[in-house]
């Protein structure tokens, strides 16, 4: 059994998922991947990650819904959630904004486009 912590990355952009996986693995984490909220929930049930990096705007089940489901669940509320939010001046026709993300029960937030160093800092701080 590896003592490396498991992080689940959920985003509908497969290249972003892969980029984050490469970075996280280089920082000595194990990584699971999912491409929408439904797959994300299945992975959480199966793998029990320590932390979830969760995009907000996704098909089938968006990140807000998944985040709130987890945080309202006795079983999963301890899983740390970092939401990837959109910045309003970059995408002005969406509800999935950084401000919107702050209304959820997520533990932390990172605006897109992602500052990788900032994201790694947040991941490490939350897993300490």
């Amino acid at each position: 059994m590896s003592d490396k912590k498991l992080i689940l990355v959920v985003d509908d952009d497969p290249d972003l998922v892969e980029s984050l996986a490469i970075k996280l693995e280089s920082e000595n984490f194990r990584v699971a991947k999912a491409y929408d909220g439904v797959e994300g929930m299945d992975e959480i049930k199966k793998e029990r990650p320590a932390l979830v990096i969760l995009d907000v705007m996704m098909p089938r089940k968006d990140g807000y819904t998944l985040c709130n489901e987890l945080k309202n669940s006795e079983e999963y509320k301890g899983i740390i959630i970092v939401l990837l939010t959109a910045v309003t001046d970059a995408i002005n026709s969406t509800n999935y904004t950084h401000m919107g993300g702050k209304t959820t029960l997520a533990d932390d937030f990172v605006p897109k486009p992602i500052d990788l160093d900032k994201l790694m800092e947040i991941v490490k701080d939350n897993l300490q």
């Binding site: 509908d12 797959e39 098909p59 089938r60 026709s93």
Partner: peptide
């Protein structure tokens, strides 16, 4: 558990 999906918008 995967279905082919259209990207936003």
């Amino acid at each position: 558990n995967h279905a082919p999906f259209f990207s936003e918008p």
